[in-house]
Design a protein around this nucleic acid. Structure first.
Lengths: 368, 368
DNA sequence: TCGATTTAGTGGATCGGTTCAGAAGGATAC
DNA sequence: GTATCCTTCTGAACCGATCCACTAAATCGA
């Protein structure tokens, strides 16, 4: 009995059985008689044996029972987003007993996400990549290891399973709603387009090269929908945030409302940014929705509790998590990777109304 | 080369060196000449070898480079608490490179916390227990395994390292502040006292047997401080929540405000509950602080953004996380366990004022 | 020139389990 | 009575690395 405590061999010796039998006492109770099993377990107790060493078992079985979750930034920061919280719970549920634990790996955006070394050192059966950009080194490391990977709202073409929200359809619905109300002057408040730390009004060039998949799809939907309504997308200002923190939304709203002509509707690409817009509007003395309409995306709980409640695009984050869990589970069972898209639903709050000076309401466009 | 991809032995064979040398190419670059190292790495690339298998390495070195974090309820739910988020980030920082990943293990309160089987199966170097009650089976499993354990705001006497906020001193300061303002009629809004799902006004018996350590210490401080001011603690109603969700605080506030005599000050044992109190007061048509004073505990970001900003007891959650990380690191390095207590600071917001009808303000008690 | 030290690389033991083919023994079938 | 089967248990191989004691060659000092 080494200095590291008793091993299964010690237990077997004390119980007077072979190592195999002692092992079976833990893993295959049906493979041995009850009395022998009792004896083995009693020996374990008498030695203070805490059960088979997980590391040794994992090596032999080539299964660790844990799944790696890759997130941007510090874990607490990543999960300050209610959407991420719901997702995480859904994931835990969807994995069920395919994983007894979730291994969090993180890394700042400026460092390029979680370090590849951490990915290589992780004793996991598969990975889930939560909202990582496509050029993340960690994703390459996952693929080198040949482990199952499910990307969430991640880049296309990574050759693995992917769960994605219907970004385009959802964002288009929100814009159409604003058009229906009669708006013609828009401003967009966007999440970061790429990991370059840029803040401010995006140039045409920047809009051509967007690596963040959610931003890209939502932005494309906005511009496409406006174009379809006869509004030149290149005339629509896009303000880009450094993070998706409400404070950034506040700052950018001030920027957009300084423009002339001043927008009558702000399309925020996420609820957290939209909440910042509401705040900024308040402090600028603008009434929402009378003076300014605002839409969000995500339908986080705070959105409906905001004053006024946000018009936003709802997606079922918990469902996304559950689906991710199922997908990973399938892959762990040897099934091929699949892609899934979850649909959205426009939630009409009280942050949108016809533009100021327009008294015809929702008929404005039809008659205009 | 087996069906599971190349191993270090394959790389060594191709490079024409021994297994030891190939291993050194990865772990001890200084133990071999540059050309040989190049050759080994090149062989690895040509075989598509993704680097040493983490599971095998972990078994041999008896180090996994990951730390287990035990939380109550689903992980997303656990980290919906801003305090938990700050803690988690602090922990990640405090651990530094002692851990490249955090393994989340969870379990509902009604299930008794994280399952012991998950603890036994976890390939980790140590555990952090975040706000778990003392009678959690998972903690027994950790101790059976003989792994380092740091409990946060956890039970005393578990024989391991512990980081704890100065609950009594902090809560006492808040109560003293209310007494100084002239309040004599108090109500307490408490987190769950034990994992029994009870909601409502606690009986004297229930107050004697509190297993949640934070609730116990804060409650004791309240009652002790009131007793010292000549108020009979047994006359002070204690409303117990099912969770620490603001909605519970709302519900319990209605309960307390239905009592007569009606309290003029509510002492909530956490900010989230206190935020619920503010909400409920608003919907009852009570002005805070004119009609009702409210104090919280934790100083979460939302507390200062609330209307009115909460008077609360600040604790540095991130510091707590960092200290926990350091403590665990020490233990991993073989140092003995230590206990640490982080101090608190009373943050005076605008949710507290002299009781209604009392115009003398803070001199009331001194002159009374 | 010769012994002492350093450097580069090797072989085998080891970490602590799981698994599988097979042996021993008893029960069952005919 | 023997062939067959089932149950229960064993022995040895194996998972994929790391580590330690050791050797051979190179360098150094005087």
């Amino acid at each position: 009995m080494g200095k590291h405590g008793p091993t299964l061999a010690d237990v077997a010796r004390v119980a007077g059985v072979s190592r195999s039998t002692a092992s079976n006492a833990y893993n295959r109770p049906d493979q041995l008689s009850a009395p022998v099993r009792e004896r083995v377990l009693a020996a374990a107790v008498s030695l203070g044996y805490p059960g088979p060493d997980p590391l040794a078992r994992q090596l032999r079985t080539r299964r660790s029972g844990t799944v790696g979750v890759l997130v941007l930034e510090r874990p607490g920061y990543a999960f300050s987003d209610p959407a991420a919280q719901l997702f995480l719970d859904g994931l835990a549920e969807g994995l069920g007993d395919a994983a007894t634990g979730l291994l969090l790996l993180w890394g700042g955006a400026e460092a390029g996400g979680p370090p590849p070394s951490a990915v290589r050192a992780a004793g996991v059966d598969g990975f889930v990549s939560y909202c990582l950009p496509g050029d993340t080194a960690a994703l390459d490391a996952v693929q080198e290891r040949g482990l199952p990977l499910v990307t969430i709202d991640g880049p296309v073409g990574r050759g693995e399973a992917c769960v994605r929200v219907a970004n385009r359809a959802g964002q288009a619905a929100a814009v159409r709603h604003l058009l229906d109300l009669g708006h013609r002057r828009f401003g967009v408040v966007s999440m970061p387009l790429r990991a370059d730390g840029f803040v401010g009004l995006a140039s045409a060039g920047q809009l051509l090269d967007v690596t963040d998949p959610s931003s890209r799809d939502r932005l494309a939907a906005v511009r496409n929908e406006l174009g379809g309504a006869g509004i030149d997308p290149s005339e629509v200002p896009v303000a880009v945030a450094r993070s998706s923190h409400p404070a950034d939304g506040r700052e950018l709203t001030r920027l957009l409302m300084d423009l002339s002509p001043r927008p009558t509707a702000l399309v925020a690409l996420s609820d957290r940014l939209a909440l910042g817009c509401l705040d900024a509007a308040r402090s600028l003395g603008l009434r929402v929705p009378d003076d300014l309409s605002v839409t969000g995306f995500d339908a986080i709980p705070e959105a409906s509790e905001a004053e006024p409640p946000l018009t936003t695009v709802a997606q079922d984050h918990a469902l996304k998590g559950r689906l991710s869990g199922h997908l990973l589970r399938e892959m762990l069972d040897g099934h091929p990777a699949r892609d899934l898209e979850v649909s959205t639903r426009l939630v009409i709050g009280r942050s949108t109304a016809p533009p100021p000076g327009d008294t015809t309401g929702s008929t404005a466009r039809a008659t205009g």
